[in-house]
Amino acid sequence: MPDNKVNPTHSKSTGLPRKRFYRARAHSNPLSDSHFPVPLTPAHVDYSLHYPQADSSKKIKFADIGCGFGGLLISLSTLFPETLMIGMELRDKVSEYVKERILSLRVANPGQYQNISVVRTNSMKYIPNHFEKAQLSKMFFLFPDPHFKEKNHRRRVISPFLLDEYAYVLEVGGIIYTITDVEELGEWMKSCLENHPLFEPLTEKELEVDPAVKLLSSATEEGQKVARNDGQTFQAVFRRIARSDQSVVQDVKHVRFVTSDSFGSIYDYSILQS
C-alpha cells in the first residue's frame, strides 16, 4: 500500500478490507425510518465524490440494488469500463465494506475501478431521489431478501407497485435483471414482471448474448455460495418497453423506439444491437 499506515481491518497481503470486521446481519428492515442522508433530487447526487476521475458529464447508467458485498459491481466494472454504476445497500456496515473494497481496488489497480461506487440507502424508498426519469439502462436485483411470510410480502424489493418506480428510472429498452435461489420468490418476481404493462421478457437468444446475464449467478458472493452448495437458481430478465399505444420501428443495426409522451413531444431512442 502506498501509505505506510497499516489499516488493521485490511488484509496485509492484498490490501483489501477483510470481511470479518464488517460482519452484519443478513437482513434489514426496509420499512423502518431511515437516518442516513438522502439526496434532495438526482441533481444533488455528488458525482465528484463517487467518481473522482470520471468525466463529469457522464451519468450513472447501471444500478445494483441491494449490492451486498459488491461482487457484481466489481465484475461489471471491468466488463463495462466506460459506464458509471452504483451499488445501493441498506446495511451500513456492508456498504462501508464495499466502499473500502472499491477504494483499495483503485489503489491496487491504478486507473481501474473508477466507474463504480456505493451508497447506503433504502432503494425501496429513495430511488427517485437518486435517478432521473429514464436515466438507467440496467438494474440488478440479485438474491434479494425472500420475505417468506405473506404478511411481509410488501417488504419484497420486486413488487407490482415498486416496479412502477423502476420503470420510471429505466430508459425504454433498459433491462432489469433478477435472480434468486428461492423458487417461490423466483416465481413471484417473474409474475410481477410479466403482469406489469411496461416490461417484456428477453428472448432466449437475447439472454445468450447478454454478457451481464452470465454474471448473475457467478459474480456475487451469494451466487457463489449457492453454486458451492449445488443450489438451483431462478432468474427473470425483462426489458422496459414503451406503452403499448406507441410504435416500435426496427431496422437492421439499430433497435429504434419512437415514442410520444402524453404532452405530444416525440422521443427517439436508439439502441445499438450487440
Binding site: 412502477d164 420503470a167 420510471y168 404493462p197
Partner: peptide, 14 residues
Amino acid sequence: NGAHEIQSFCLGHT
C-alpha cells in the same frame, strides 16, 4: 390494472 406510468416526481421540499 393500476396506474403504472409515472409522469414525474416533484422533488425539492426538505
